[in-house]
């Protein structure tokens, strides 16, 4: 039996079931409105839901919020504005009856670990977004939860701040040892932090697997776009290929009609050392293609140019969409 076994339904928002083992870091991704936040809030007990959340042999949904042994990191942190960082982090241990001196010692320890030890005396209003999120993570971890829920902790942070926090968060979550659920809309979070990726789409689990699995064989357009992969749907069969495997020509290339498409260049953007084209295929979804700047110049690939895009069959991964 898995350590964590979840089956929850929030009416009109989300209906999801999955399991996880101790040490798992699960990235919950999906488009806006897919029910990501509702899922973690339901587990935390902050929105009404039905179902069960079995953690070892307890059903968390039968327990009041404070007895669920969860740590929650909110998108807007919700640090108590009238307490300094130290007392915010000490709040959890104090609420659970730990003696004052010990709670404050533990708070200092966690602030040090999140590298905001020197900001202990500051109130939330005096912290930057990244600093406040570090304090919020320290506060959640200080209660020694079994289950850590992070609701878009990187949202709203500067790109640079988010990047360094992401790398550290990966380490903290790996050391944490419990089970973490990380709601994110950033593919990078899923790849750097997570051991499992849960893809939600319209309130349902569209895909649940390892980051490799989900990013190599995405079953939703949303994930395909997030990871920058071309995914074509052919009945139950999905075919994924990388934009760098795509060849762009001005005339129809030879080969199977299944692997070549006429279209019009719609967008040209720099992508690393290459140029990334978005090609409007005449009778199908848009495709991404990476070309060298030299090739782009030679073929005159500007917006509006009619082209043929093709891919070698050997570069295409075919897989079956899981039935839902």
């Amino acid at each position: 039996m898995s350590a964590l076994s979840i089956s929850v339904e929030v009416p009109d928002r989300v209906s999801a079931a999955f399991t996880a083992e101790r040490g798992d870091v699960i990235a919950v991704i999906g488009p806006n409105g897919a029910g990501k936040s509702s899922l973690v809030k339901a587990i935390a007990g902050l929105v009404a839901c039905s179902g069960s959340v079995r953690l070892d042999d307890r059903d968390l949904l039968r327990l009041p919020v404070r007895d669920r042994s969860i740590g929650m990191v909110f998108q807007d942190q919700l640090l108590f504005p009238h307490l300094d960082a130290r007392h915010n982090v000490a709040y959890g241990p104090r609420a659970r009856g730990v003696r004052r001196a010990e709670a404050l010692r533990s708070a200092d320890h966690w602030l040090q670990r999140l590298r905001v030890g020197d900001l202990a005396a500051r109130r939330p209003g005096e912290l930057s977004g990244g600093q406040a999120q570090r304090v919020a993570i320290a506060r959640a971890l200080a209660t020694d939860p079994d289950l850590l829920l992070l609701d878009e902790p990187m949202t709203g942070l500067d790109v640079g701040v988010a990047t360094s926090l992401r790398i550290e968060l990966a380490r903290h979550l790996a050391e944490f040892g419990g089970i973490s659920l990380l709601v994110t809309h950033d593919a990078l979070d899923a790849l750097t932090v997570a051991t499992r990726v849960l893809v939600l789409d319209e309130g349902r689990v569209a895909q649940y697997g390892t980051p490799d699995d989900v990013t190599q064989r995405p079953v939703t357009d949303h994930v395909a776009r997030l990871v920058g992969l071309n995914v074509l749907r052919d009945g139950d069969e999905l075919r994924a290929f990388d934009p760098s495997a795509v060849t762009v020509d001005l005339v129809a290339p030879s080969g199977s009609a299944r692997n070549r498409w006429p279209g019009t260049v719609a967008v040209v953007t720099p992508h690393g050392a290459a140029l990334r084209l978005v090609v409007h295929v005449h009778d199908g979804p848009d495709l991404l293609a990476d070309v060298t700047p030299a090739a782009a110049t030679e073929l005159g690939l500007s917006v509006g140019r009619d082209v043929w895009v093709s891919v070698k069959q050997t570069s295409v991964r075919s897989y079956t969409a899981p039935a839902n």
């Binding site: 404070r66 959640a140 209660t143």
Partner: peptide
């Protein structure tokens, strides 16, 4: 005064009375 702070206090293990004293009233 935002209700969400009460929710945050509950996730940290506070009883409603503890949250009332330490969060609701100060805010």
């Amino acid at each position: 005064a935002h209700k969400e702070y009460d929710a945050a206090a509950a996730t940290l293990g506070a009883t409603r009375w503890h949250a009332f004293r330490t969060v609701t009233v100060p805010l």
